[in-house]
Deep mutational scan, measured.
Amino acid sequence: VIAMPSVRKYAREKGVDIRLVQGTGKNGRVLKEDIDAFLAGGA
């Protein structure tokens, strides 16, 4: 999974398994917005 360390930390704090999140950034990078969208109700 491609993600910046700050995004990985954010996901950990929110209790999200970053491997389950679909990245929308360049080359499938997971963004902070992707974590929020995942929490809001889905992949």
Results as ranks from 00 to 15, higher is better:
Val1Gly: 08
Val1Ile: 13
Val1Trp: 04
Val1Tyr: 05
Val1Ala: 08
Val1Gln: 09
Val1Glu: 07
Ile2Phe: 05
Ile2Cys: 08
Ile2Gly: 06
Ile2Gln: 09
Ala3Val: 08
Ala3Leu: 04
Ala3His: 06
Ala3Cys: 07
Ala3Pro: 05
Ala3Ser: 08
Met4Gln: 14
Met4Ser: 15
Met4Glu: 15
Met4Tyr: 15
Met4Leu: 15
Met4Ile: 11
Met4Thr: 15
Met4Asn: 15
Met4Ala: 15
Pro5Trp: 06
Pro5Asn: 12
Pro5Gln: 12
Pro5Glu: 14
Pro5Tyr: 07
Pro5Arg: 15
Ser6Arg: 10
Ser6Pro: 07
Ser6Gln: 10
Ser6Thr: 09
Val7Leu: 05
Val7Phe: 02
Val7Arg: 01
Val7Asn: 02
Val7Thr: 07
Val7Cys: 04
Arg8Ser: 06
Arg8Ile: 15
Arg8Trp: 15
Arg8Asn: 05
Lys9Asp: 15
Lys9Leu: 11
Lys9Ser: 08
Lys9Trp: 11
Lys9Pro: 01
Tyr10Thr: 02
Tyr10His: 05
Tyr10Met: 03
Tyr10Arg: 03
Tyr10Asn: 01
Tyr10Ser: 02
Tyr10Trp: 04
Tyr10Asp: 02
Tyr10Ile: 03
Tyr10Phe: 04
Tyr10Leu: 04
Ala11Arg: 00
Arg12Asn: 13
Arg12Glu: 15
Arg12Cys: 09
Arg12Trp: 15
Arg12Ile: 15
Arg12Thr: 13
Arg12Val: 15
Arg12Phe: 15
Glu13Phe: 11
Glu13His: 09
Glu13Thr: 10
Lys14Asp: 01
Lys14Ser: 07
Lys14Leu: 12
Lys14Gln: 11
Lys14Trp: 08
Gly15Pro: 00
Gly15His: 08
Gly15Lys: 08
Gly15Gln: 07
Gly15Phe: 07
Gly15Arg: 08
Gly15Asp: 07
Gly15Thr: 04
Val16Leu: 06
Val16Ser: 01
Val16Thr: 03
Val16Cys: 06
Asp17Ala: 06
Asp17Trp: 05
Asp17Ile: 05
Asp17Gln: 05
Asp17Thr: 04
Asp17Leu: 06
Ile18Pro: 04
Ile18Lys: 00
Ile18Asp: 01
Ile18Arg: 01
Arg19Met: 10
Arg19Ile: 07
Arg19Ala: 11
Arg19Ser: 11
Arg19Gln: 09
Arg19Leu: 09
Leu20Thr: 08
Leu20Asn: 10
Leu20Ile: 09
Val21Thr: 03
Val21Met: 05
Val21Leu: 07
Val21Asn: 00
Val21Ala: 03
Val21Cys: 06
Val21Arg: 01
Val21Phe: 03
Gln22Lys: 15
Gln22Ser: 13
Gln22Thr: 14
Gln22Leu: 13
Gln22Asp: 08
Gln22His: 14
Gln22Arg: 15
Gln22Ala: 12
Gly23Lys: 03
Gly23Thr: 03
Gly23Gln: 03
Gly23Trp: 03
Gly23Ser: 04
Gly23Leu: 02
Gly23Arg: 03
Gly23Glu: 02
Thr24Met: 05
Thr24Ile: 02
Thr24Arg: 06
Thr24Ala: 03
Thr24Gln: 04
Thr24Trp: 03
Thr24His: 06
Gly25Arg: 03
Gly25Met: 03
Gly25Asn: 02
Gly25Lys: 03
Gly25Ala: 05
Gly25His: 03
Gly25Asp: 03
Lys26Phe: 12
Lys26Asp: 10
Lys26Gln: 11
Lys26Thr: 11
Lys26Pro: 15
Lys26Ala: 12
Lys26Arg: 13
Asn27Tyr: 12
Asn27Ser: 09
Asn27Met: 10
Asn27His: 12
Asn27Pro: 02
Asn27Lys: 11
Asn27Gly: 14
Asn27Arg: 10
Gly28Arg: 07
Gly28Trp: 05
Gly28Asn: 08
Gly28Ala: 06
Gly28Lys: 07
Gly28Tyr: 06
Gly28Met: 06
Gly28Pro: 02
Arg29Leu: 11
Arg29Thr: 09
Arg29Asn: 08
Arg29Lys: 09
Arg29His: 09
Arg29Pro: 01
Arg29Val: 08
Val30Met: 03
Val30Phe: 01
Val30Asp: 00
Val30Lys: 04
Val30Trp: 02
Val30Arg: 03
Val30Ser: 00
Val30His: 02
Leu31Pro: 00
Leu31Val: 09
Leu31Asn: 07
Leu31Ile: 09
Leu31Ala: 04
Leu31Trp: 05
Lys32Gly: 04
Lys32Leu: 11
Lys32Thr: 07
Lys32Trp: 08
Lys32Phe: 10
Lys32Tyr: 09
Glu33Thr: 13
Glu33His: 12
Glu33Leu: 10
Glu33Met: 12
Glu33Phe: 09
Glu33Lys: 15
Glu33Ala: 14
Asp34Ser: 02
Asp34Leu: 00
Asp34Met: 01
Asp34Cys: 01
Asp34His: 02
Ile35Ser: 00
Ile35Ala: 00
Ile35Thr: 00
Ile35Lys: 00
Ile35Glu: 00
Asp36Trp: 04
Asp36Tyr: 04
Asp36Lys: 05
Asp36Thr: 05
Asp36Ser: 04
Asp36Ala: 04
Asp36Ile: 06
Ala37Phe: 10
Ala37His: 11
Ala37Lys: 13
Ala37Pro: 01
Ala37Asn: 13
Ala37Met: 12
Ala37Arg: 14
Ala37Gln: 10
Phe38Ile: 07
Phe38Leu: 07
Phe38Asp: 02
Phe38Gln: 04
Phe38Arg: 04
Phe38Thr: 04
Leu39Pro: 04
Leu39Tyr: 06
Leu39Ala: 07
Leu39Val: 10
Leu39Lys: 06
Leu39Cys: 06
Leu39Thr: 06
Ala40Asp: 11
Ala40Met: 14
Ala40Tyr: 11
Ala40Arg: 14
Ala40Phe: 11
Ala40Ser: 12
Gly41Ala: 14
Gly41Asp: 13
Gly41Gln: 14
Gly41Glu: 12
Gly41Asn: 15
Gly42Gln: 15
Gly42Lys: 13
Gly42Pro: 13
Gly42Arg: 10
Ala43Leu: 14
Ala43Phe: 14
Ala43His: 14
Ala43Cys: 09
Ala43Glu: 13
Ala43Arg: 11
